[in-house]
Amino acid sequence: HRQALGERLYPRVQAMQPAFASKITGMLLELSPAQLLLLLASEDSLRARVDEAMELII
């Protein structure tokens, strides 16, 4: 289940942060499945989480 969510998330994360897409997707997969579904449904929520992840990385 998580694998399938990751496969759906990755291209969207890659479009926002290509250099760190794998790392960010891995970080996002730590969230609950319900939270992941919310990110897939909301571009704004996904962008906010990706921005948060980038702050942790750099």
Results as ranks from 00 to 15, higher is better:
H1P: 03
H1T: 14
H1A: 05
H1Q: 07
H1F: 08
H1N: 12
H1Y: 10
H1K: 06
R2F: 09
R2I: 15
R2V: 15
R2N: 15
R2W: 12
Q3H: 13
Q3D: 15
Q3S: 13
Q3W: 05
Q3C: 09
A4T: 15
A4L: 13
A4W: 15
L5V: 08
L5S: 04
L5H: 04
L5R: 01
L5G: 01
G6Q: 11
G6P: 09
G6F: 15
G6H: 12
G6M: 15
G6I: 15
G6C: 13
E7V: 10
E7Y: 07
E7H: 06
E7R: 13
R8K: 14
R8T: 07
R8Y: 08
R8W: 12
L9F: 06
L9H: 01
L9M: 05
L9N: 00
Y10D: 02
Y10A: 14
Y10F: 11
Y10T: 02
Y10L: 15
P11C: 10
P11N: 15
P11D: 10
P11M: 15
P11Q: 04
R12F: 13
R12N: 06
R12A: 12
R12G: 05
R12E: 07
R12C: 06
V13I: 14
V13C: 03
V13G: 04
Q14V: 07
Q14A: 14
Q14G: 04
A15F: 11
A15G: 06
M16F: 10
M16Q: 05
M16P: 01
M16K: 02
M16E: 02
M16G: 02
M16H: 08
M16W: 04
M16L: 10
Q17S: 11
Q17P: 01
Q17N: 08
Q17W: 11
Q17M: 12
Q17T: 11
P18T: 06
P18H: 08
P18V: 03
P18I: 06
P18C: 04
P18D: 03
P18R: 06
A19W: 12
A19I: 14
F20D: 05
F20K: 04
F20Q: 04
F20E: 04
F20R: 02
A21H: 02
A21Q: 02
A21W: 04
A21D: 00
A21M: 01
A21P: 03
S22H: 10
S22D: 11
S22L: 08
K23P: 03
K23W: 05
K23S: 12
I24M: 01
I24A: 00
T25P: 00
T25W: 05
T25N: 04
T25G: 01
T25S: 06
T25F: 10
G26L: 14
G26V: 10
G26K: 14
G26E: 15
G26Y: 08
G26F: 12
G26R: 06
G26D: 15
G26S: 12
M27T: 02
L28H: 00
L28I: 09
L28V: 01
L28E: 00
L29H: 02
L29Y: 02
L29M: 09
L29A: 02
E30M: 05
E30A: 06
E30H: 06
E30W: 05
E30Y: 05
L31P: 00
L31R: 04
L31C: 06
S32W: 08
S32A: 13
S32H: 09
S32I: 04
P33F: 13
P33M: 15
P33C: 13
P33S: 15
P33A: 11
P33R: 07
A34R: 05
A34C: 11
A34M: 10
A34G: 11
A34I: 12
Q35C: 11
Q35L: 15
Q35R: 06
L36S: 01
L36K: 02
L36V: 12
L36F: 04
L36W: 03
L36C: 07
L37Q: 07
L37D: 05
L38V: 13
L38M: 12
L38Q: 14
L38G: 13
L39M: 13
L39H: 02
L39T: 08
L39G: 01
L39P: 00
L39I: 13
L39W: 02
L40T: 03
L40A: 02
L40S: 03
L40E: 05
A41V: 13
A41R: 06
A41N: 14
S42N: 12
S42R: 03
S42A: 06
S42Y: 04
E43Y: 10
E43P: 07
D44C: 06
D44R: 06
D44Q: 11
D44N: 10
D44W: 03
D44M: 10
D44L: 10
S45Q: 14
S45T: 14
S45G: 06
S45D: 11
S45W: 04
S45M: 12
S45F: 10
S45K: 14
L46Y: 01
L46W: 01
L46F: 08
R47L: 05
R47A: 08
R47D: 02
R47T: 06
R47S: 05
A48M: 11
A48K: 11
A48Y: 13
A48P: 02
R49Q: 13
R49N: 04
R49E: 06
V50Q: 00
V50N: 00
V50F: 01
V50Y: 01
V50A: 01
D51F: 09
D51M: 10
D51V: 11
D51G: 05
D51S: 06
E52L: 09
E52M: 13
E52I: 05
E52F: 08
E52Y: 08
E52A: 07
E52C: 06
E52T: 04
E52R: 04
A53H: 06
A53G: 02
A53T: 11
A53P: 00
A53Q: 07
A53Y: 13
M54T: 06
M54C: 07
M54H: 08
M54Y: 07
M54Q: 03
M54E: 01
M54L: 08
E55T: 13
E55Q: 14
E55F: 10
E55K: 08
L56R: 12
L56E: 13
L56V: 13
L56W: 04
I57L: 07
I57D: 01
I58K: 08
I58S: 12
I58P: 03
I58D: 12
I58W: 14
I58M: 09
I58F: 10
